[in-house]
């Protein structure tokens, strides 16, 4: 075994990853798009945090910011108490070892001209871990960890199934024993029967290595299944946050409630409306107003704050945070 984790995650900081008031605006040919607005969230050590939201909610931008692929316009992103920008300036290699990622399309993330053994060893080579003999041994271990048959070591990506290719990506991500694994829609492109296998593998990795994960998905059931805590994003910011079971079983924000009703579709109960299609997002007040079944006047003029309604369970909704109003709308 190599020396283990490069970063001392037991250092005296409370959280592994912490975002505070993060803003990110993209300039497009149709004007600026504020992808992330005053976003705050925390991932604790060994914790799986699920980030759920629809297309354009800003969830993948969060992943890119954490991975240093984009830079925030404002706010702070800290890893082990230190700004990500500082990590990347001073100790980029250590940060890249500590924070690894798995993406949606398994084949796009793999060099099609390289064999599986080479692909799994690549992170070790880049970070100068061991010699060729110890690396070959480590590749075998990693392939066993992700339940890849050792005989696949000489295959090229096109000779793999989607599930096998995603296992190769996970093995690559695990090679350097990261403290945080960022997973951006890691099962959305896979066949249904393969999705369950990959989700089970991620659960196993989290349990056995107490590796923290930022797990990003549009699917509330998938996020709920894996996560210790759930953060629901809408139009660039967190609208609800809390323990995994609480947010999905007792949603307080009307957008989370919409996600819950949409998720009951597969269970056969699909008389539910899907909610309206993406409306123009207002620039003042609550961004969800055009789709909200319970909006009051105040919602259009003043954006709600993220208020704690129960232990560790917060919601950004004027109606949810007011017991009288909540009783009224049922």
């Amino acid at each position: 075994m190599p020396s283990g984790r490069v970063l001392d995650v037991d250092r005296d900081v409370t959280s592994l990853l912490e975002l505070t008031g993060v803003d990110k605006t993209f300039v497009t040919d149709r004007g600026p798009v504020r992808a992330v607005r005053r976003m705050s969230m925390v991932v604790g050590k060994g914790e799986v945090v699920g980030l759920v939201g629809e297309s354009g909610s800003g969830k993948s931008t969060i992943a890119n910011l954490v991975l240093g692929l984009e830079h925030a316009d404002a706010g702070r992103i800290r890893f082990l108490g230190r700004d990500v920008g500082e990590w990347l300036d001073k100790e980029e290699a250590r940060y890249r070892q500590a924070v690894q990622a798995v993406f949606q399309h398994p084949f796009q993330a793999l060099d099609s001209r390289k064999r599986v053994g080479w692909l799994v060893a690549e992170p070790l080579v880049i970070h100068r871990r061991g010699n060729s003999k110890s690396r070959a041994e480590r590749v075998r271990e990693l392939m066993a960890d992700v339940h890849l048959d050792p005989s696949l070591v000489d295959r090229y990506p096109h000779q793999l199934s989607g599930g096998q290719a995603q296992r190769v990506n996970i093995a690559r991500a695990l090679a350097l024993e990261p403290s945080l694994l960022v997973c951006d829609e890691p099962v959305s492109a896979l066949d249904v029967s393969v999705q369950a296998q990959i989700l089970n593998l991620l659960l196993e990795i989290n349990r056995e290595r107490s590796m923290a994960m930022l797990f990003i998905s549009h699917s509330l059931p998938v996020v709920r299944h894996l996560s210790d805590r759930i953060v629901v994003m809408y139009a660039g910011t967190a609208v609800e946050e809390g323990p995994g079971g609480e947010v999905s079983d007792r949603p307080t924000h009307p957008y989370t409630q919409l996600l819950v009703s949409a998720a009951s579709v597969v269970t056969g109960d699909h008389g539910q409306p899907r909610g309206t299609m993406r409306e123009a997002i207002p620039s003042v007040g609550c961004r969800f107003v055009p789709r909200c079944p319970v909006a009051i006047d105040r919602c259009s003029s003043e954006e709600p704050s993220l208020d704690e309604l129960a232990e560790g369970h917060s919601s950004r909704c004027w109606v949810a945070s007011d017991p009288a109003l909540r009783a009224e709308v049922g």
Partner: peptide, 23 residues
């Protein structure tokens, strides 16, 4: 049935392995 069972659902135990069909 295997396909339906392997899908995460809101009414299922969290953080437990999903029944999955081996290839």
């Amino acid at each position: 049935r295997g396909l339906l069972d392997s899908v995460p659902r809101l009414d299922r135990d969290r953080k437990t392995p999903l029944p999955s069909m081996e290839p």
